[in-house]
Design a protein around this nucleic acid. Structure first.
Lengths: 155, 155
DNA sequence: ACTGTGAATGAGAATCATTATCAATATGTT
DNA sequence: AACATATTGATAATGATTCTCATTCACAGT
């Protein structure tokens, strides 16, 4: 209950209210703070990071993130060890992107692949329903390795 | 120490011995059982699954899997909840493939994308060193959704 | 604005997965 | 066989996440 450095944008808030209403969830001050963190963070955040940055108690952050994931507003991103990370679902944020996961320091940054690659991925993934009976929700394309900072240090 | 239903193939064993030797690790009976599970399982397995299936105590399975991951013989695959899953690294197994993760039951199955898609991915990923200073180890391309069994039931 | 009902909160307890400990044992070597 | 070192496994310790429950808050109807 301290404060959020910046608040949730009105556009996002409106869309979120809709999504939450379907599950009889309310857009409370805490959930606003949590979402604001994700909206303004330029990378997926751990539960601890969200709690620390928003001032919302950890138990509430855990609960809220789980509810928001269920509601499809937030998605979980697998990092490298440490805790799970979270970011706004694509429908509620800027653009489609993927992740660069540093296996040394665990940090996750975004990157946007070429339009060509995305198109091909979409095609391929779309065919899975027919071939495997697999109902695709979305795809994860992450690149793992060592970030610039880490590669200039150890090993 | 019960028994492994099937044993580790000789070819894999030979390659693994080499990889382990570099770290002064031995290919013990337990590690053989663990690896045999991964070699014959047709999908990534959780630590519990490996322990249950091989009869090796969980504490040892945890330790062995961690060592094998360090040695590059096994890779961790992020599932949906539950525990982390593991499979033989590509250098020690059949072919390059990716994963279909069911967000309902958590099961992970393999699928092989087209050669065209792989080539494009490789190109794009290779360019990241120059553009981002990111030293790529490998890429993860997983598709999330609901498997045939789960889509025919709930929701 | 006032009230009622159900959702949300938060501090701590409880749980679950994973890691560390350490004495006993197994491995590969000379 | 004897040695030096890696491995094992039962259990304790840790760390992350979930649960509990009495209190507080949010929204709808008045």
């Amino acid at each position: 209950m301290t404060e959020a450095s910046s608040s949730l944008s009105a556009a996002t808030a409106a869309a979120v209210v809709q999504a939450l209403a379907l599950r009889e969830l309310r857009l409370t001050a805490n959930r606003r703070s949590v979402l604001a963190m994700l909206e303004h963070g330029e990378r997926p955040l751990t539960t601890e990071e969200v709690a620390a940055g928003s001032g919302v108690p950890v138990s509430t952050v855990y609960r809220n993130l789980a509810e928001l994931v269920d509601a499809g507003v937030v998605v979980r991103v697998a990092g490298a060890g440490g805790g799970d990370r979270h970011e706004l679902a694509e429908a509620f944020s800027e653009h489609h992107h993927h992740h660069l996961v540093c296996t040394d320091c665990g940090i996750v940054t975004d990157f946007t692949p070429s339009r060509q690659l995305e198109t091909l991925i979409e095609q391929e993934v779309g065919a899975l329903l027919a071939s495997e009976g697999f109902e695709v929700a979305h795809h994860v394309f992450d690149v793992r390795g060592r970030c610039r900072a880490c590669s200039s240090v150890r090993r």
